[in-house]
C-alpha cells in the first residue's frame, strides 16, 4: 500500500474510533435518561422522580384488572416479578392490553402509592405465531399441570 493511502487509512480508522468512543461516553453518561420507563422495583427503591410525571413499565398481573361499571375507569397492578404498583386509568386501552401483557403507563405517583396514568401503551413482545400453535401450547401446558 502506498504511504499516502496508508496515511489516509489510518486517519479514517482514527476518525471512526474517535467518534465511537465519544458516542459511547455520551450514551454511558445518559444511560438513565435513555430508558423509556421505570420498573416497579425502581419505584419501590425511590429512584423514580416524585411530583413529576414519568413512565412506568411492567407486566399486568393476572386477575388484577378491575373495571368499574358505566365508565372507562380501570385499575390494575403492574409487576416486574419482584415488586408491583397499582395503576389507575380512565380511557381507551390499546388492542394488545390484557393480563400478562407488558405495558408502559405515563402518569405520576400519588401519595397513597397508586400510579394515576394519563396514557397507557402496550408493549408488544417479539413472538409471532399462529393461533393454533398457542392453543396447542396451552393444551400441552394444561396436560403437564394435571
Amino acid at each position: 500500500m502506498k504511504p499516502r493511502r496508508k496515511q489516509r487509512l489510518i486517519l479514517v480508522s482514527l476518525l471512526i474510533a474517535g467518534v465511537a468512543v465519544a458516542a459511547g461516553l455520551a450514551l454511558l453518561a445518559l444511560q438513565e435518561n435513555i430508558n423509556l420507563f421505570f420498573s416497579p422495583s425502581q419505584v419501590a427503591a425511590g429512584e423514580a422522580p416524585a411530583n413529576t410525571p414519568f413512565r412506568l413499565g411492567g407486566m399486568v398481573v393476572d386477575g388484577s384488572v378491575r373495571r368499574s361499571d358505566g365508565s372507562l375507569e380501570i385499575q390494575f397492578d403492574l409487576t416486574d416479578t419482584a415488586n408491583s404498583v397499582t395503576v389507575a386509568y380512565t380511557g381507551i386501552l390499546p388492542d394488545l392490553f390484557r393480563e400478562g401483557q407488558g405495558i408502559v403507563a405515563q402518569g405520576s405517583l400519588g401519595t397513597d402509592g397508586t400510579f394515576s396514568a394519563t396514557q397507557v401503551l402496550a408493549k408488544h413482545d417479539e413472538t409471532y405465531m399462529p393461533p393454533e400453535v398457542t392453543e396447542a401450547l396451552e393444551k400441552a401446558k394444561a396436560m403437564g399441570v394435571q
Partner: peptide, 21 residues
C-alpha cells in the same frame, strides 16, 4: 437490548432460534 424501550426486541436477528413461526 441496552435500554428498555417500547419497541420489541429482535425476532429474527439474534443468536437463538427466531421467535416467529
Amino acid at each position: 437490548e441496552w435500554w428498555n424501550t417500547l419497541h420489541q426486541g429482535p425476532t429474527v436477528t439474534k443468536f437463538d432460534q427466531p421467535s416467529i413461526a
